[in-house]
Design a protein around this nucleic acid. Sequence first.
RNA 1: GGCCCGUUCGUCUAUCGGUUAGGACACCUGGUUUUCAACCAGGUAAGAGGGGUUCGACUCCCCUACGGGCUGCCA
Length: 441
Amino acid sequence: MSVTTRFAPSPTGWIHVGNLRTALMNFLIARKTGGQFILRLDDTDQERSKEEYVDGLKEDLTWLGLHWDRVERQSLRMERYAEAADQLRAAGRFYECFESAVELDLKRKKLLNMGRPPVYDRSALKLTEAEKTALRAEGRAGYWRFRLDIERIEWADGIIGDISIDAGSVSDPVLIKADGQVLYTFASSVDDVDMGVTHIVRGADHVTNTATQIQIMQALGGVPPTFAHHSLLTGPGGEELSKRLGTLSLRDLRAKGVEPMALLSLMARLGSSRPVELAGSMEELIAGFDIATFGAAPTKFDAEDLFPLTRHHVQGLPFAAVQARIAALGVPAEMAEAFWAVAKGNITVLADLEGWWQLFRDGATPAIDEADRAFVAEAMALLPPQPWTTATWGEWTAAVKAATGRKGKDLFRPLRRALTGRDAGPEMADVMPLLRKVPTV
RNA sequence: GGCCCGUUCGUCUAUCGGUUAGGACACCUGGUUUUCAACCAGGUAAGAGGGGUUCGACUCCCCUACGGGCUGCCA
């Protein structure tokens, strides 16, 4: 049987790191097995779903190189859901309820106060046709619940292992609202069956849903897929991540210069027993992925960890990959390659190139310690006129050494600081030919 | 409150009853380097607590504590 996976976001916001982990895992499983990866837009909530987010979702996935084989939209499948609902009604698994949200809330609180689990009491199941007709006549709109079979629902989870949930501890899920809107749990189950989804990887927040969805799928005549629930990400301190999600959307990370391969490399390994290492290509990522290596414990995520990986990735890029970006900085074509060769070792994100280019183009604001002032002035007097070559630094420092007697760190460091304004940077021999302006000391 | 999952170095984790509790990242030290990075060598560092079972428990069972999730006419 060929593998089909799906990523099913609801277009009510931007993709964030948590979403991405889910998307990536499903994508990798499909690619690893030569299966199909579906992008399914779970947009049944018409109030919150926005076209803007649909576009954003696709843009983000494309940026990461997570290409889908098929797009589906739940909002386009309403007729199918109506049909499936009829099927469940005919099978006696759907029943109409009339309690208002306020009434339900009250029931829940009452049960909670009595120390009982807040499970729906199924009182609507006892309604006679006459009573239902009367309620409708009052202007009450009915909504529909799925009648669970009370049993232990078991499945072998791809990450958690064997797990079971007692249907009796869960309320019969509402699948169709009073206004006719189809709810996620229902649409998702219908789709997964219809679309031939064979493997579902999703967050641990869906574990309880899975139990009810298994029964819904079976009632629909489908075969439940293999489920795997990955742990949820927390912040570095173990705190809930959602509070910080604002700064962890893919768009924000991208704006900070995080590279796709760095992000993918971390997300494909974090929480697994395999070491986090930068992948050189999507193929490498696919080959090195195994859902079975992930643990069920909550996983701490620190966005800072993305930067060492990004640096590693960026520093390994060939000139061709950054040529356009360097040209956009205004670096003349004839010195672009030399500029990249010199600067790349000293950047974390590509945006850091700008600082180096500014230095080369405009010259530095010299950094000179008070104690070195006389020494630097003497050295500057010995500096040959431009143009400089890679030999200039060696010749100049040798001359300065002879004139002043300084050597080693005491010799080189003040000169670097005077010429570049920085303590660290590329080899000075390589920097000299690129410097266009001599700083005035 | 109920249900589900979890808890091993700072972090992600290995260990399927007997190990000097291993690895990766981070960190520290040394080497190399004009600096940073990189690289090489070395190092610090862990089984939440309490009961059982057993010749022997990180591993199996129970309790407690702590963390996460769910408990919506959201997804």
